[in-house]
Simulated scan of single mutants.
Amino acid sequence: MIEDLKKWFVDHPTSTNIIKYLVWIVLVFVFITWIRRILKKKLPNNNIKYKSQKGVEVIGYVFVILITVSYFTGSIKDLGLAIGFLTAGITITLQEIILSIAGSFYIFLVKVYKPGDRIEINGIKGDVIDIDSIYTTMMEIGEWVSSDNYSGRIVKLSNAFVFKGAVYNYSRDFPFVWDEFNLPIRYGSDIELAKSIVISVAQKNLAKYVQESMAEWKNVVKEYYIEDAQVDPTLAITMTDNWVQLNLRYIVDYKKRRFTKNILHEEIGKMIEETKGAVVLASATFEIVKIPTVNLQDRNGTDKDLN
């Protein structure tokens, strides 16, 4: 039987080469999987562990390409020519995959985003939890839930989207965002007291974010052509038909928008109640100034006024 098997290999050189090629490919993937498991167990830092595993994966792809070229061209010297013919043949049918792979290299080299960043891409917002050679995986936020809460859906997006539109990164260079809310105060209230309440609560709860964001913003100014920004809480007043509107604008950690807004509302509301009516929140109400007179006539032609 062994002699028959040897004879078959001799009589079928093409099949033999294909089998050898497949064996080498399987060995490469087995070796890569083994190395990744060792790195996962031995490396303590999640960031280093993740990057090391991805690096080993890329090296594995390079070996697969080299083995493929050497088997199907006969010489590794023909690598450039072989890749040229190969690319020309599959570009049309695999253009999305090729663009995705190119996008993965672009993401890592240019550092568009990394695992742990909060981004918005192709209209989808979420936290990046994985980046492989083809897909970016995100934990979605928003959609049917309010504010920046997780929806519970895990979304996979092609890496090709980094070439097709804007990528909004909430955390890469400046992990803070500006937020604001409006506070309607009834006419006749002590506006100065209302202003002092809002500013004092804002300064008390936002001092940490202001200090941290000032340091981060200095790095942004050094890196990009941009002017200095106002990071202290600011208050603007608008006179409307129904109330005096106080607009508070402030800076906050991008992951703590909802929590911070809730704290501000609670404390401002309590302090307004403690003013014993000196400051009153306004609401949309309608005042009827005068009821119009309706003139009716009975059958005899006599006028009757209805008030």
Rank of each mutant, 00 (worst) to 15 (best):
F9Q: 14
V10W: 10
S15Q: 09
V26Y: 13
V26A: 15
V30H: 02
F31V: 13
T33C: 07
L39D: 05
K40M: 05
L43I: 15
N45K: 04
I48Q: 07
K51W: 14
K51V: 13
S52F: 07
V56D: 05
V56L: 14
Y61H: 11
V64Q: 02
V69W: 04
S70F: 11
Y71D: 03
G80R: 13
A82T: 14
A82Q: 10
I83T: 11
G89V: 05
Q95N: 12
I98A: 14
L99A: 15
A102H: 07
Y106N: 09
L109P: 01
V112I: 15
G126P: 00
I134G: 03
M138I: 15
I141W: 00
E143M: 06
V145Q: 10
S146F: 10
N149D: 06
S151I: 02
S151Q: 06
V155T: 11
S158E: 05
S158M: 03
A160M: 10
R172D: 02
P175I: 07
W178V: 04
W178I: 05
F181K: 04
I185W: 01
G188D: 07
E192K: 12
S196V: 03
S200P: 03
S200H: 07
S200F: 04
E212H: 03
M214N: 12
E216T: 03
K218N: 11
K222M: 10
E227G: 15
D232Q: 12
L235G: 09
L246W: 00
R249P: 02
Y250I: 00
Y254N: 12
K256R: 13
R258C: 02
R258F: 11
F259I: 13
T260R: 00
L264V: 00
G269D: 06
K270H: 03
I272P: 00
E273L: 12
T275V: 04
T275R: 07
A278Q: 12
A278W: 01
A278V: 02
V279S: 00
V280D: 05
S283C: 02
A284N: 13
T285H: 11
T285P: 04
E287A: 14
I291Q: 05
P292V: 06
Q297C: 08
D298W: 04
T302K: 14
D303E: 09
D305P: 01
